[in-house]
């Protein structure tokens, strides 16, 4: 088998493979940076909770019009936003912290979603929604992903400075500006948007993987915020490419393959990264004289 056959032919010869690669790589452009901010804000599990929360909306869309892109996307986005807002409101107006209220709402949401899907669909449909079908991305889905990523990148650029300030010193931001709370909400909106963008490809549960794993891995290599975002995008793209290759050659499920490659990169970064376990042990004794 030549290199061409091994590395390029699957994407050149089969339209569905090319579209899958394009979809995953476009998605990672915004999912990477959003994931970086999630990890820096110590909201990694919030991403996970939101991923569950979009299920009933997607399921409602599915109930109305079957496995169609637009209704499921809009439904998922609405459900995610509602859960994010409710959790935020409960945290603001009660003694419960945002993480507990978020957990409560996403569990309710998840149960509701599975029940909705079971009302009409089969287990196969449920698997589609939960774990996605990256190989079934059609042109409509690609356009949708492109639109979502464009909106996310513009949104992120607009709130960038406030988001950095909100992460770095929230009480200072409160003292000079009222932007903190709206910025938090816009950011949650972007998280939901990217999860919704990812769920056609990877499903509601694995979409968060393309967001968190590259971001978490990037942190073991670089210091700066921009560098972290760039590296996360790179790791996401590499994971998408090799994940799809593995899925093609070994005939395994593609979505999980992508996330597993990202997981491998994360594990390798954790151990061998410049700021990872091995390096920081090896060189902890080295120091300058002043």
């Amino acid at each position: 088998m030549s290199f061409y056959q091994l590395l390029i032919e699957p994407f050149a010869q089969y339209g569905f493979m090319g579209r899958a690669l394009a979809g995953a790589m476009i998605l990672t452009l915004s999912a990477g940076p959003v994931g970086v901010f999630l990890t820096l804000r110590r909201m990694s599990l919030t991403g996970d909770a939101m991923a569950h929360a979009i299920l009933p909306g997607a399921a409602a869309g599915f109930l109305i019009s079957g496995l169609a892109i637009l209704p499921m996307t809009l439904g998922g986005f609405a459900a995610g936003l509602i859960v994010a807002l409710l959790a935020g409101l409960v945290a603001r107006f009660s003694i419960q912290r945002e993480d507990s209220s978020l957990a409560a709402f996403y569990l309710i949401s998840l149960a509701l979603g599975v029940m909705l899907v079971s009302l009409r669909g089969s287990n196969v449909d449920l698997m589609h929604v939960l774990f996605g079908t990256v190989l079934a991305l059609n042109n409509d889905a690609l356009i949708m992903i492109g639109a979502i990523v464009s909106i996310s990148l513009v949104g992120l650029a607009l709130i960038w400075r406030a988001l950095v300030a909100e992460c770095l010193d929230p009480s200072f931001l409160r003292s000079v500006s009222r932007a903190g709370h709206p910025v938090h909400l816009v950011f949650l909106g972007l998280v939901v948007l990217n999860l919704v963008g990812g769920f056609q490809a990877l499903g509601t549960l694995l979409a968060v993987g393309l967001m968190m794993l590259p971001a978490a891995a990037a942190r073991f290599w670089v210091r700066g915020l921009e560098a972290m975002c760039g590296l996360a995008i790179g790791i996401g793209a590499v994971s998408s490419y090799f994940g799809l290759l593995i899925s093609y050659h070994l005939s395994v499920a593609s979505g999980p393959a992508i996330i597993l490659v990202a997981g491998l990169i994360y594990a390798a970064s954790l151990i061998f990264g410049r700021r990872g376990v091995v390096f920081s042990r090896l060189h902890s004794r080295r120091h300058r004289i002043a």
Binding site: L40, D169, S171, V176, A179
Partner: peptide, 26 residues
């Protein structure tokens, strides 16, 4: 101060927050 010391920012980033009123969001 509720400063997140683990956030990847340098001294300039932190101090430049003081320009917020002049710079605003953009």
């Amino acid at each position: 101060a509720e400063i997140d010391r683990s956030f990847p920012a340098d001294v300039t980033d932190l101090v430049a927050l003081g320009l917020w009123k002049q710079r605003g969001l953009f």
